[in-house]
């Protein structure tokens, strides 16, 4: 039930951001989950930044840039689709070998993450696409 709700919320977020995107001045046909204007971001991308800081930063480092023990997500999201991203966050990861210990908890039941999965993705995708610089983004007027 909770997961369905989360998916619903995520879908709504996606819908609103896509809608916002259509009115933006970008000439590309590709759909982007974020809206960035003069370094300012929409509400959900900003929320993604904050949720990232709460639940992800401790391992993946400031601004998504990775740490000595977790990958740089600015790089990872150049390869991963949103579906793959969601799958990893919801189910976690457990790849332990002699040369690496990639263990990530499952966030599938964590409200602070799963309810805002789309927002977190939007923030990281904006970082990954180079649309958003480092640090705390400023907000577009809501």
């Amino acid at each position: 039930m909770r997961l369905v709700l989360a998916a619903g919320v995520a879908a709504i977020c996606l819908f609103t951001t896509v809608a916002a995107q259509q009115t933006s001045n970008s000439g590309t046909s590709e759909e982007k989950p974020y809206h960035v204007e003069d370094g300012k971001v929409d509400k959900s991308t900003y929320n993604g930044y904050r949720r990232y800081g709460d639940s992800c930063l401790r391992c993946h480092g400031p601004d998504g840039l990775g740490s000595s023990y977790a990958p740089n997500l600015v790089e990872s999201l150049k390869r991963l689709s949103q579906d793959q991203f969601n799958e990893i966050v919801i189910n976690g990861k457990n790849e332990v070998s002699t040369s690496q210990q990639l263990v990530m908890p499952s966030f599938g039941m964590v409200e602070d993450v799963v309810l805002y999965l789309g927002d977190i993705y939007a923030y990281l995708k904006a970082r990954s696409d180079g649309a958003l610089g480092r640090g705390r983004p400023r907000r577009l007027d809501n």
């Binding site: 480092g61 400031p62 840039l65 990775g66 740490s67 000595s68 740089n72």
Partner: peptide, 9 residues
């Protein structure tokens, strides 16, 4: 390693 792997800014 977390705070500084990416460098602070």
């Amino acid at each position: 390693g977390i705070g500084m792997a990416a460098g602070l800014q």
